[in-house]
């Protein structure tokens, strides 16, 4: 089942105190695995924010499943993101005030979707988190926190999982483990996978690679 899931054209972003950033056009097919590769400061996180409907670009457009994301009403855009996008951030981003299970369930709660407790149990079992449901993030290891973040990202069976530098801070062995986990979970959820990173070690896992140059390109 293929088709264009996410597409951006002529995106540029204005950031205070820096020249406008222009990004290459992006096209992600359903269930496709895409790598956005670029050095630090090249605008990878900014690009993910634009693609996810979190930062309106100064120029250009973003289409998700045929919808122009930035012509949608803000609430509709929030819904679209909550239901269709899963995120794994660079610094994990589990809420310290909530326990592990609540952190995973947040994905459904914030997207106004019914909580599927069985799926939460399944994910926790699959990711080796069962028995730690009531622990706060501070009581979990880095690896457990990362797996919890992945569980939250895939809970709603999103159409695309976006991750930002998931392997940069890991050694080769753990980088491979996390990458396999992301691949497996994306496959199970039927989601495309878009990884933004400066980590060249994982490039061989992807056929579709988009490169960002330096501090991106100065917009014409």
């Amino acid at each position: 089942m293929s088709g264009i899931l996410l597409q951006s054209k002529n995106i540029s972003v204005l950031r205070k105190g820096t020249p406008p950033l222009a990004f290459p056009d992006i096209r992600v097919e359903t269930m496709e695995k895409t790598l956005v590769l670029g050095p630090s400061g090249s605008g990878k996180t900014t690009l993910l924010s634009v693609l996810a409907g979190l930062l309106k670009p100064a120029t250009g457009s973003v289409h998700f499943k045929g919808h122009d994301v930035y012509t949608l009403a803000p609430r509709a855009r929030d819904h679209l993101r909550g239901e269709n996008f899963g995120f794994v951030f660079q610094t994990l981003h589990l809420l310290p005030t909530l326990n592990l299970r609540q952190n995973i369930a947040l994905a459904a709660d914030m997207a106004d979707m019914p909580r599927d407790e069985k799926r939460i149990d399944h994910l926790m079992t699959t990711l080796g988190l069962i028995g730690k449901a009531h622990r706060k993030p501070e009581a979990l290891s880095q690896g457990e926190q990362q797996r919890a973040a992945i569980a939250r990202a895939v809970l709603n069976r999103p159409k695309i999982i976006m991750t930002d530098e998931p392997t940069s801070a890991l050694d080769d062995e753990n980088a491979e483990i996390v990458l396999k986990l992301l691949h497996d979970q994306a496959k199970e959820a039927g989601a495309a996978l878009l990884i933004a990173t400066h980590d060249n070690r994982i490039i061989h896992h992807f056929k579709h690679v988009i490169r960002l140059e330096g501090r991106a390109r100065e917009a014409a």
């Binding site: 609430r75 929030d78 981003h93 809420l95 005030t97 994905a107 914030m110 997207a111």
Partner: peptide, 16 residues
Amino acid sequence: RYDLGVLRVLGASPLT
């Protein structure tokens, strides 16, 4: 602030 950013990413509205 970071946690609130995460909630927005997960689909929460500014009103939430």
